[in-house]
Amino acid sequence: MLAAALNEAGGYELVGETTFGKGTVQQSYDFGDGSEMNLSMFRWLTSAGNDIHEEGVEPTIEQTQPDYFYATALAIDEPLEPNDNSDQVRSAQEILLGLGYEPGRTDGYFDEQTENAVIAFQEMADDLDVNGTINEETAQALHTSIVEQIREPSNDRQLNRAIEVILEQAS
């Protein structure tokens, strides 16, 4: 809603991707028996009266983030190892690639090159067994490392593009 207001009422550029489009307001009602009901009671409208529900707010300047910004955290029940094929492996491959390791693929198949990337990561990290499999400790270390990478402002393409736009407008 803020982005839409900045654009519609202030004429500001919007840098990024189309927003999710949540345009309803839900209100909870508690009943005496411990049950609860959520009702959609209102719709959010932009300052120009536009309904964004299920449509989102379109950026005026499209800018995506690197794929690793969208990688899901690893939930390790059993270690990930060569010949596994899963969404968890795919996420690990995207994280490894984002950290500068070359898994060779990001389709979820744990091959020899992915194993080599895991080994390279484990060798650089402190206190990890270097075995080429992704156990809970390695998954946590991957998560911590990728979060640090995401939080680094120089890696945020949307932020950096927005800063460029502001500087262009100021000159």
Rank of each mutant, 00 (worst) to 15 (best):
E54N: 11
T72P: 01
V89A: 09
N83D: 15
S86L: 06
D107C: 10
L99K: 04
E58N: 10
L96T: 08
P82N: 06
L97I: 02
T64P: 01
T46N: 06
S47W: 12
N85K: 12
T106W: 07
E58H: 10
V57S: 02
N83P: 00
Q65K: 14
S86D: 11
A71L: 09
L96F: 10
P103D: 13
G49N: 07
E55Y: 12
H53K: 08
P66S: 07
G56E: 09
L96N: 14
Y70R: 12
T106Q: 14
E62G: 01
N85D: 14
L97V: 00
L80E: 09
D87H: 06
P82K: 13
Y101T: 12
D77M: 02
L80K: 02
R105L: 03
E58Q: 13
R90L: 15
Q88G: 13
N83F: 05
P103I: 11
A73P: 01
E54F: 07
Q88P: 00
G108Y: 10
G100C: 06
L96H: 05
D51W: 13
E62H: 05
G56T: 04
P66T: 02
L96K: 11
Q88V: 00
P103C: 11
V89E: 11
V57L: 10
I76S: 03
E102K: 05
T72I: 01
E62L: 08
D77W: 01
T72L: 06
D87K: 11
Q88R: 05
V89S: 11
P82A: 15
R105C: 02
L97S: 15
Q63N: 02
N50F: 13
P66Y: 04
D84W: 00
G98I: 02
Q88W: 00
T60E: 03
L96P: 13
L80D: 10
V89Y: 04
S91G: 02
P59M: 11
L97H: 14
D51A: 08
P59D: 08
H53L: 07
A75W: 00
T46I: 12
G98A: 04
G56Y: 10
T64S: 14
N50Q: 12
N83L: 14
Y101P: 07
P66A: 09
S47M: 10
P59G: 06
F69T: 01
A75K: 08
E55Q: 15
I95V: 15
L99M: 05
G56R: 05
